[in-house]
Write a protein that binds this DNA or RNA. Sequence first.
DNA 1: CTGTTAGCGCATTCAC
DNA 2: GTGAATGCGCTAACAG
Lengths: 347, 347
Amino acid sequence: MSEKRKLTLKDIGRELGISVSTVSRALKEHPDIAQETIKLVKDYAETHNYVPNLLAVNFRKNRTFNIGLIVPELVHHFFSTVISGAIFEANRQGYNLMVSQSNDILKDEILACKAMLNSSVDGLLISISNETDDGAHLLEFLNEGKPVVQFDKITDKLPTPKVIVDDFDGAYSAVKHLIDEGYTKIAHLRGRKEVKNSSERCDGYLKAIQDHNLKTDPSWVKDCLKITDQEGYDFTKELMESENPPNAIFCITDLVALGALRYLKEFGYEIPKDVGIIGFSNWMLSRVSTPQLSTVEQHGFQIGMDATSLLLEMIKNNDVENLKTVEIKTELVIRESSELSKVKQAK
Amino acid sequence: MSEKRKLTLKDIGRELGISVSTVSRALKEHPDIAQETIKLVKDYAETHNYVPNLLAVNFRKNRTFNIGLIVPELVHHFFSTVISGAIFEANRQGYNLMVSQSNDILKDEILACKAMLNSSVDGLLISISNETDDGAHLLEFLNEGKPVVQFDKITDKLPTPKVIVDDFDGAYSAVKHLIDEGYTKIAHLRGRKEVKNSSERCDGYLKAIQDHNLKTDPSWVKDCLKITDQEGYDFTKELMESENPPNAIFCITDLVALGALRYLKEFGYEIPKDVGIIGFSNWMLSRVSTPQLSTVEQHGFQIGMDATSLLLEMIKNNDVENLKTVEIKTELVIRESSELSKVKQAK
DNA sequence: CTGTTAGCGCATTCAC
DNA sequence: GTGAATGCGCTAACAG
């Protein structure tokens, strides 16, 4: 396989009998250069298919036109949607996206950062792992003048801008919706206390209950540790077998809601008549379950786009001190699993 | 923010009163260098936190330690699993992974290739779009001596190694399973004819039917164009309302199977008793549907790992002529939706 | 064992 | 308008 050597500025200069620097300037239409020279050079470059050696350009300019992105888990509908948005925006602005994942393990996150920091990236988008605390490994980026933008799973300990979901409001509106539909005893399968997103959602849940003069029961709030459908199943079983079973459940995420749904169907509860369910995230699976699951759309693609455009702006302005927080509004997605009012009307 | 200038070999040399090249060699423990010098230099580098400028190294060596990956659609359980495996293996071998997507649009695929080809990548992993034909844009990689490995969605027109799923065998075993369970009239919701994977699966289906002396009916094979749950729903409706309805359906992918499931449940069919269903891909949603969906696991993570390690091997050996084809075995995942024999025994 | 020299491809400063 | 010279940081051939 003939690895044809790539054309360089020097080659062009030699062929055309002009100097390298003139060729370089002509190619970028420097005002000093004569129009004919520009045309001459550009034509030659065009026909001989000149493409600049980016490795050299980047080295010279000390930047890569790559940005990095690290998420806890790539195989997750929300995160892959975010990545999709990040790729879109990065490519649109002429950047490539380097992707890695932490598996929610701090050690892996640090490794991923190290790999990216070493001159392979001009800036970083990150959704931190559950184990990340002070983020010393992230500070290194800032120290090298490379901006960082946090999104979704964030820490306030790091002086960077953030793009977040309005978890509180999303949860609030989900619970308000349940209340509006006529549910009165609303439980919540929440996530781990240390995770900000799940605390926000829990707070939104409590506030909605309180604002509408309803009550919650301490036993109605369950802590999911692994956020699996099995936890949804098990906690729902606990809830329904208790002395004071709820008649609706707001779940930290769709997967947990699916588990709740599974238990309820298995034990003959009618949904949404006997029990209403609402999830969070609008995974694809919430649309194809039976009954279809109400949920909260997080607009992951938008988050990816916004975080990326924020990062690129900082890169271009050589700005690592931005502390802006962008909040992306969620959107209630009402489907069958919570439409109590419709069922009642039908009678 | 003080962008502290990074330490260079020159700095170290100046401080220690030795030449740059000695420093360079000492750092990589070149046999020529005296042990004491090595120690001296390494200690200095360590305490002063020297980190080589990869941009310069890469420029010098004309490689980037990045590999590219392009898939039709990132937000897809199978592909994100593959990417996950690719990241794992790439990082393990000291490479970063650059990700892009084609959205199954040739134009976008070409753009993504261009962006990656320009010196930002040492090799490429690609699952081609539906629109890709001769792959001229991919040949450019080979012409520049950068290896390409195709996976899953491939074309034989391109002289590269391939990592593929045994779609034929997977489909065969899925259908054989249905037959073994006692189903006799098996339909198939297939994908588009131009897509190799779906043709392979269809062939596997036909072969299994034939090998077991069953018959199929031309009207039992439906072409899904968009591979959505709605198509699954609609075609299942057609099938079940026809004069000769099947008693089992093998679906091109889990999403379509979910649509089939939805129709059947809605119209009172019992699953797996009246109709058996099996999908393909083992998406997360197949585990949480009711009934749980039987399917075929494709081992995406393994595919990602294998394709990556194959690519890195080629990169390291400077080999662009490998034509090996690696076939990753699928695995039948039996769940409720096809277990007719169990239901019968239970009676 | 170590230093000198040269050069990767490009951008840029300074002459002319 | 254009060319010559310089250097980015690192590696490697060559010389001693």
